[in-house]
Design a protein around this nucleic acid. Structure first.
Lengths: 164, 164
DNA sequence: ATTTTCGGTTGCAAGATGAAACCAGAAATG
DNA sequence: CATTTCTGGTTTCATCTTGCAACCGAAAAT
């Protein structure tokens, strides 16, 4: 067996996310979906991706609950692919990638697409990683804990011993 | 020519970011780097990736300026891979992926690793996409503008006509 | 009725991936 | 100092994935 390594059972949430959307096309499909693309042909033309690849990616995105296949909004017999709530929750991921790209891969003044606040037309504020009490955190200010078999809602009268 | 499609000349910053780190392993290598991994063997054991693949990924990450190869910190003759400022700027991306994974791929109470504030041990605040003036933005509140050949610093007396 | 568009599927060539074997230099051990 | 072990790779090969182009049926347009 030499199949692609999967991370969908990894204990790290980053790994599971990467497993779901961490290939070359999926994130760009999601980006286009945020940008208003809905139809197979729209994605295909926008991305320049081969149709068989697009077919496969759309299928996995639907299977993993990021996209949903719905009847076309214009009354035609075709179907459209729209973001589910789970897919829309990827917004910060896309914005983070966009801001990183803007800051690191473009020469000053080089043309690029930009995400702006629809109401005021201004660029967005840079994402900030914050602590629970609102302090801005750098990578060094954080650590990874292992949370093992947690009790989500402690039941007062339950006979089971409390976690930790 | 059937080589892998590249996005490094795309006008969309998301595409360029994906081109740099959008494969299965690169993001996980970066995650481990945030988590303190530095040595080849550390990454290899932590990720379970084949060594040839790891070699290739580390090389491209170094080439793209995300990682830097430095002499080992313990005085040995080996080298270590550490995040550059550009690599550290991926922190919001990793955090966004982590939060998305936590919220969408784990059953309540299922064990997982968690990123916490080192000072207080609390979980981080969920990332928020904000407008310039601090309003929280949903995907629908934003649009993509094309910024074409912008003038970064308008020179008052320049003969060139102003942008737009 | 015919043509065009849409949304795919199929087949093939080439590139990327994964596993395992191999290897040189550094470090540890005796 | 000699030997062994560890580290950080490279090489090889089988398999999987990707990209391209050809093809195709149903829907839409003409």
């Amino acid at each position: 067996m030499v199949a692609r390594t999967r991370f969908d059972a990894d204990e790290c949430p980053v790994a599971r996310s990467v497993d779901a959307i961490g290939d070359w096309w999926s994130l760009l499909i999601v980006r286009d979906a945020f940008d208003g693309s809905r139809r197979f042909g729209e994605f295909q033309r926008s991305l320049g991706v081969a149709k068989n690849i697009l077919t496969a990616r759309l299928r996995t995105l639907v299977d993993s609950g990021v996209l949903q296949s719905v009847p076309a909004s214009d009354g035609s017999a075709y179907r459209e692919y729209v973001l589910t709530p789970k897919g829309k929750a990827l917004f910060p991921v896309i914005v983070a990638l966009r801001q990183w790209g803007e800051q690191n891969f473009f020469a000053p003044g080089e043309p690029h697409s930009e995400l702006v606040d629809r109401r005021q037309g201004h660029r967005l504020r840079a994402l900030e990683v914050l602590s629970a009490d609102g302090r801005r955190l750098n990578p060094d200010d954080t650590t990874v804990h292992k949370v093992s078999a947690q009790c989500p809602e402690p039941e007062p009268d339950a006979g089971t011993p409390p976690c930790r």
